[in-house]
Nucleic acid binder design. Structure first.
Ligand code: FES
Ligand code: FES
Lengths: 154, 154
DNA sequence: CATATTTAAGACCATCTTGTCTTAATTATA
DNA sequence: TATAATTAAGACAAGATGGTCTTAAATATG
């Protein structure tokens, strides 16, 4: 798998938050309900994103989480880096230590190119890009397509 | 991680076998020694490659494993498919079921492109390609670079 | 035929990821 | 201030992956 489940959940939650026009706090419970993700598990993941300042949180009633920066300034690679780390984008495809330094492996040339494509894709895509696309095409971020990109004004 | 450890080990062993000019049986013990991989674990992996007819094996003294087809006719994607399956090359980046069919996810466009790059790379690269490159550049397929692409004529 | 060597098969354990649960700390609101 | 709602923190369980070990089956060789 390219990305861990934690990372995928984190991305989907970030998209959810970026789709909220007014940047109010939204409870993790609501997110987990709407995206059909285990609430406790999602809490742990979003705590990590809060720790690295991608989100900010508030406790208590009316509390929740929200993006700390505008959605068009957050790229996917930041979420991947926060949760899965940069290993995918730096390591040897054959698992050998120190990709690129000194002797590379025979796959290095091909993999370095491919890896750059992945990296570029993650670096060039912002949350807002995906939200825009999602709203226009009514695309899904849940298994059953239940999430409908409603502007959340509550 | 892009590929599982099993898959990486299988690839490195396949490269090892493809580097042997005369296509004699080579014992898994020797491979595991030269590539510094746990012999029992490697045995299990190579059994899988034998099961799908990428390798053939013989028991007993002078036995071992060897490529069933010529190295220039075996592409990396076959090894990946045999060990990790095709999930990486068919599934949704956000983990949603049925990528591409019906409603895609917002990442689909970008991911489908990137995924095709990975697929193309794996499909276009043969074991012989990598062996040639490895021999020319004296590249490594072990952590410490101890494997030296000697023609094995024993 | 007896023996040693090798792969085949599968039980078993360790480690990592995923997911659940409990408790504590914080905070809006009546 | 008391209460309820919420995030924070971390223990714990379940499942997947990685890795070890034992036994069986096959086979070359003396
Ligand atoms: S050294 Fe193997 S991919 Fe760079
Ligand atoms: S539907 Fe998500 S990547 Fe294709």
């Amino acid at each position: 798998m390219l990305l861990s489940k934690s990372c995928i959940y984190g991305m989907r939650a970030a998209l959810y938050l970026a789709s909220s026009s007014n940047n109010k706090y939204i409870s993790i419970k609501q997110i987990s309900n709407d995206l059909d993700i285990s609430p406790h598990f999602l809490t742990k993941i979003l705590q990590e994103l809060t720790r690295v300042d991608l989100l900010e949180s508030q406790k208590g009633p009316t509390g929740g989480v929200r993006l700390k920066r505008a959605g068009d300034e957050v790229t996917l690679v930041e979420i991947v880096a926060a949760i899965d780390g940069m290993d995918l984008l730096t390591e040897c495809a054959l698992g050998l230590p120190g990709c690129g330094t000194a002797k590379p492996c025979p796959l290095h040339e091909q993999w370095a190119d491919t890896r750059d494509e992945i990296k570029k894709m993650l670096q060039d895509t912002t949350l807002s890009d995906l939200v825009r696309k999602g709203k226009e095409g009514n695309l899904r971020i849940t298994a059953d397509g239940s999430f409908d990109w409603l502007p959340k004004e509550n």
